Amino acid sequence: TFELKGKVGKVVKIAEDHYLVESEGDKWIAYSDEKLSLGDRVMVVDVDGLKLKVKRIP
């Protein structure tokens, strides 16, 4: 299986209740415990079905 946990991506869209993150050339629906901005670099900390939980990284 394709393992996304630990992968790095970038926030490419902000929606009302989720983010769109591009990682490894694909776009994924993501959510975070912190507020993210367009262009933020993020790391995948968990995968919930087809949704990614991400956190901001420097």
Rank of each mutant, 00 (worst) to 15 (best):
V42R: 00
T1F: 15
D33Y: 13
E24N: 03
D40A: 12
P58L: 12
K55L: 14
E34C: 11
Y19T: 05
S32Q: 02
D40N: 11
K13L: 10
L20T: 10
A15M: 10
D46M: 03
S37W: 12
D48H: 08
D33P: 13
V47Q: 06
K5W: 15
G9H: 02
L20V: 08
M43T: 10
D33H: 12
S23E: 03
R56I: 06
D48A: 06
K51G: 10
I57S: 07
G25K: 04
E22D: 05
D33I: 13
T1E: 15
V44N: 02
G39Y: 14
D48G: 03
K7I: 03
K7C: 13
G9A: 14
S32N: 04
V44D: 01
V44P: 01
D48M: 11
K53L: 10
H18Q: 11
D48R: 05
H18P: 00
A30R: 00
K10L: 11
D46G: 03
G6L: 01
K51M: 13
V42D: 00
K51P: 02
V42S: 01
D40Y: 12
S23W: 01
V47P: 03
E22R: 07
D46W: 04
L50T: 07
R56T: 05
W28Y: 14
G49E: 06
R56W: 08
S23L: 15
P58V: 09
K13W: 11
K5C: 15
E3W: 04
E22K: 06
D40V: 13
K51E: 06
K7N: 04
V44C: 09
I29V: 08
K35W: 08
V45N: 04
E34G: 08
E34S: 07
V45C: 05
K13V: 07
K55W: 11
E34D: 10
S32C: 08
V8L: 14
L20K: 06
K27N: 08
K13I: 08
F2R: 15
L36P: 02
G39I: 03
I14W: 10
A15Q: 09
V47E: 04
V12K: 06
D40G: 05
L20W: 08
E34M: 07
A30K: 00
G39R: 11
K53A: 04
T1Q: 15
K7Q: 05
D17Q: 11
L20F: 09
A15G: 08
K55D: 08
I57Q: 07
K27H: 07
V8M: 08
L52S: 02
D26Y: 14
S32Y: 02
W28E: 01
K51T: 14
R41V: 09
K53F: 14
Y19E: 01
G6H: 01
A15C: 10
E22Y: 12
D26H: 13
L38R: 07
K27D: 07
K55F: 10
L50D: 04
D40Q: 13
E3G: 01
E3F: 03
R41Q: 10
K7H: 05
V54R: 00
G6I: 01
K55S: 13
K55G: 05
I14V: 10
K53I: 04
A30M: 12
S37F: 12
A30E: 00
Y19R: 00
V45P: 00
L4V: 14
L50I: 09
S23R: 02
V12T: 09
K7D: 03
L50C: 12
M43R: 02
K13Q: 06
F2E: 15
I57E: 13
E16T: 11
K5L: 15
L4D: 15
L36T: 01
K10V: 07
I29H: 13
V44Q: 01
I29D: 06
E16H: 09
L38Y: 08
V8D: 08
L36D: 00
K7W: 03
E3T: 01
V44F: 15
V45D: 10
G6T: 01
R56F: 09
V47K: 03
P58R: 07
K5A: 15
K27Y: 08
K53N: 06
E34N: 07
Y19F: 07
T1W: 15
A15I: 10
V21S: 01
D33K: 13
L52P: 04
G25S: 05
R56Q: 05
E24V: 04
K55Y: 06
D46E: 06
F2I: 15
V44A: 03
V42F: 03
L4P: 15
Y19M: 10
K55P: 00
P58K: 06
Y19L: 09
E3Y: 03
V44I: 14
R41K: 06
K53M: 11
S23K: 01
S37E: 10
D33W: 14
T1C: 15
T1V: 14
L50G: 08
K7F: 03
P58W: 10
D48Q: 12
D33L: 13
K51D: 04
L20D: 06
L36A: 02
V21A: 05
V8Y: 04
E22F: 13
L20E: 07
V12C: 10
T1Y: 15
V12H: 05
V42A: 05
E34R: 11
I14K: 07
D26L: 14
W28K: 01
A30Y: 00
V21C: 06
E24L: 04
K7P: 01
K51F: 14
S23A: 15
I14C: 11
D46K: 02
G9P: 01
K35I: 07
E24F: 03
A15F: 09
Y31M: 14
F2M: 15
Y19G: 01
K55A: 13
S37A: 12
S37K: 06
V44M: 02
L36V: 04
V54A: 02
K51W: 13
L4S: 14
G25P: 05
M43I: 14
R41D: 13
K7L: 06
Y31I: 08
V47H: 04
K53P: 00
G25E: 05
K7M: 11
G39A: 09
L36W: 01
V8R: 03
D40P: 00
I14R: 08
D17C: 11
G9R: 01
G39H: 11
V11W: 01
S37P: 02
Y19K: 00
K5I: 15
G6Y: 02
L50K: 07
T1S: 15
V42K: 00
L52Q: 01
E16A: 12
G6D: 05
D46F: 03
R56Y: 07
D17I: 11
V11Q: 00
S32M: 05
D46V: 03
L52R: 01
K10D: 06
A30P: 00
L20M: 08
P58D: 11
V11N: 00
H18S: 10
D17H: 10
G49A: 07
V12S: 06
I14G: 04
L20S: 08
V11P: 00
F2P: 15
G49W: 08
G49K: 08
G49T: 07
V8I: 14
K10Y: 10
Y19V: 10
K13G: 10
F2D: 15
S32H: 02
W28S: 02
A15R: 12
V42H: 00
V21I: 09
V21N: 01
G9T: 04
V8W: 04
S37G: 07
D33E: 09
I57W: 11
G9K: 01
K51I: 13
K13N: 08
V21G: 01
D46A: 04
E34I: 05
V12Y: 09
D40R: 02
L38T: 08
R41P: 12
K55R: 13
E3R: 01
K13H: 06
L52T: 02
I57F: 12
S37Q: 08
K35R: 12
R56G: 05
I57N: 06
V11I: 07
E16C: 12
D26G: 10
E34H: 08
K7V: 04
K10T: 06
D46T: 03
D40F: 12
D26F: 14
D40S: 12
V45S: 04
S32I: 04
S23D: 04
L36C: 08
S32V: 03
P58A: 10
V8T: 07
R41E: 14
A15V: 10
L4G: 15
V45Y: 08
S37N: 06
F2G: 15
S37H: 06
G49F: 10
E24H: 03
L52M: 03
R56A: 06
R56P: 07
W28Q: 02
